[in-house]
Structures are given as C-alpha cells and as structure tokens.
Design a protein around this nucleic acid. Structure first.
Lengths: 193, 193
DNA sequence: CGACTTTCCGACCCGTTTGTTCTACATAAT
DNA sequence: ATTATGTAGAACAAACGGGTCGGAAAGTCG
C-alpha cells in the first residue's frame, strides 16, 4: 500500500486480537492472513516470522498500557484517586492480557527472555510512577511514608503478586472485591491518621 | 470409577469449558485428557471420537440452556418480564456459546447437520414457549395480538436474527442497548395501548 | 509504453502435531 | 482363576502449520 510501516501496524492490530483470544501457539499464520484478506506468504513481506509478529504485538500492547495508565491518572487529582485508578486500570489490562501469558507459559520458554526484557524496562517506569505518586501524596500531607522509594517498591511487589492468581482464576466478580481489599490495605497502611 | 456414565458427564463438563474457549478445531484430545488428569487414550474408553465428545457437549449445552430458560421465566410473573428475561438469558447464553458456532463454521461442515438436528428440535420447543408467553399475556389483557402462533414465530425470527451479528461483533457494552431496543420494539408493537 | 520496484500469492517443503488404534498392564468383581 | 473394567504408553497415518521460493500482479517513473 502507501506505507509499509502503516501496514505493519495493521498486521499488529489484527494479530493482537487473535493472539489475545487464542494465545501464541493456537494462532496460525493462516488465520492472521485470512483476517487481513491476504495470502499467508504475503505476511512474510512485512514480518520475518510469527515470533516477530508476536514480539511486535507485545511491544505494542505494552506501550498501549503505558499511555493508558498515564492518561488515566491525569484525569483525577487526589493522590488516592490516582493510585486507585492506576491499580484498577492495570488490573483490567492484565486480566485482558492473560492469554499472552498463557501463550508464554504454553510450552517453549523461548519468548520468556524477550518478555522479561520488556518487562524489566516497564517495571522501572512503573516504579518511577508509583514513587512519584507516593511522593506527591506525601508532600501534600495526604500520605505519610518515610521512604517513598521503598514504599513504591512494596506497592509494586503487591501488584505483581496480584498478577499470578489472576491468570489462573476465571472469576470476574471477585476482581472488584479483591481490588477494594487491596486498596483498603494500601490506604490504611499509608494514609495519615 | 463407580459409574461409567458418571465419568462421561465429567468428560463432557471438562471438554465443554475448553471447547467453548477454543472451538472444536483448536481443542486437542491431549488438552482434554490433561485437564482430566488421565492418559489421552483413556478417553477413548468413554467416547469413540473427538466428534462424539463434541456432540455430547453440544447436546448437554442445549439441555442446559433449556432448563436455564424455563426456570428463569418462572421466577417472574408478568408476561412482559417473562419475555424480557427469556430474551436476555437467551442472548447471554448465545454470546457465550459463540465459539461453538465458530467451530461449526470453521472449515468442515460435517457437524452442521448434527447441529441443525438439535437446533430444529429446539426451535420447536422455543416456539411453543414463546407462543404460550404471548398467549398468556393476551388472555391477561396485557398483550393484544391476533394470532399468537404467528406472533411467536415473528419474535423467534427476530431472536434468530440477533444471533448472527452477535458472533461477529465483540462489543460487550452495546449488547444491553441492543437488547433494550429489541424489547422496546417488541413491546411497543405488542403492548395494549 | 517499457523497465523497474513493490506487493502479493500459489505451490511446495518438511518437521511437528494430533486423532486414533493397539497392546499390555493393573485392579476389582465374579 | 478368570473375567470385566479401567488405564496408559507406544506407534502411526493423516493433517497441520511455519516458512521458502519463483514468479505473477500492480503500481511507479522515465
């Protein structure tokens, strides 16, 4: 078409939907190409392999989540609300992306290092955001924490801890309950009394 | 185990979950047996083939939906509410079962005749229910229709029409809106003024 | 119109998957 | 002891699926 890069993102967008539903393994090149109304081999003009598409999708999804989170916390003002909305959006996003994880843990752990690479980079960003959130809340006199750095890390650890059971349970109802509980715990441990 | 039939239903229950998520094609015997913590070949002691399991699952699911619907309409009294809840439950069920349809339309239409057989039987039952609903509402002076038989058929046609786009759109939000619209249409065309 | 590049695809390759069979091995029932 | 009831490992043909390749369209430019 007009632009090669443009079509690449179109492939990413399409593949993303299929991957998120079926996981990496069960998604076939045939399906992706069929969804794009193109021949299977045409895809190889834009991506060298299925894995490359997958990596692009994960990268895209990670960036998507990043902007999603940053814009979400901008829409509220109070640090509590920021933190609440941050965790909420993050949880929802991870619940949706659980299939990517199933894909990774499917059989071969080849992608594992790739995911981890993205992950570690993203973790640092997340930590920075959380640190800022805690710090601002602190200076505003809403939170009261000694070391915002380590507090942020503790929160992040908590969030990470929430991911794992998320990918194994299929409950949709108790997600909100759990979120409330988590937030309650965080705030009651963090709020100025 | 104790009872052979008992284990068959256990297989059906387990396979049902996987089928509904991945469809017929993408679900493997390996997966089913793994979920049951049994050897792959052991399943063949209970079912002759993968297709036989699939058929059993579809049959089971159809019966499930039937009782689900009949019990649901028993819980409310007014004909309007009965109709509303009937359509609502039916929609939700079909949305959930969309993967079975994807499985059917996947490639080979071998199951098609089987599904159609269940379907036609079920259609007749549904028509009877709808007819009764319309009829009761009519005698109670809430509805006002000339021929309840043909009105029921019209409603059923409408419901069938709702199925198709349901399987191609992924929206979750506008489902309720659409339901409201449909109900509104039905009631305003059917309600006594 | 050519020449040349970009985009696309059918046909094929070949290692892997998968549905199914078969046989052997337990364990319980008669 | 022998039959009935389950179970699973090994083996296999058929299908699948990722990837390659040569060349056909289709667009671009002079």
């Amino acid at each position: 078409m007009v632009n090669k890069e443009e079509y690449r993102t179109r492939i990413i967008l399409t593949a993303s939907k299929i991957f998120s539903h079926y996981g990496f393994r069960k998604t076939t090149m045939e399906e992706i190409s069929r969804a794009l109304k193109k021949g299977k081999s045409s895809i190889y003009y834009y991506f060298a392999s299925k894995e490359e598409i997958f990596e692009a999708v994960v990268l895209y999804e990670a960036n998507q989540l990043r902007t999603q989170l940053t814009t979400a916390i901008k829409e509220v003002d109070s640090p509590q609300e920021k933190l609440r909305i941050y965790i909420y959006v993050r949880m929802k996003a991870f619940a949706k992306l659980s299939n990517y994880y199933n894909a990774v843990f499917d059989k071969n752990l080849d992608h594992y290092e790739f995911i981890e690479k993205i992950r570690s980079r993203y973790d640092r960003e997340e930590l920075a955001i959380l640190r800022l959130l805690v710090y601002v809340g602190n200076t505003r006199g809403i939170f009261r924490v000694e070391a915002s750095e380590y507090t942020a890390m503790a929160i992040q650890t908590m969030l990470k801890g929430m991911e794992v059971p998320l990918f194994w349970r299929k409950r949709d109802i108790d997600i909100n309950d759990r979120l409330e509980a988590i937030l309650n715990l965080i705030f009651n441990g963090i709020n100025k009394r």
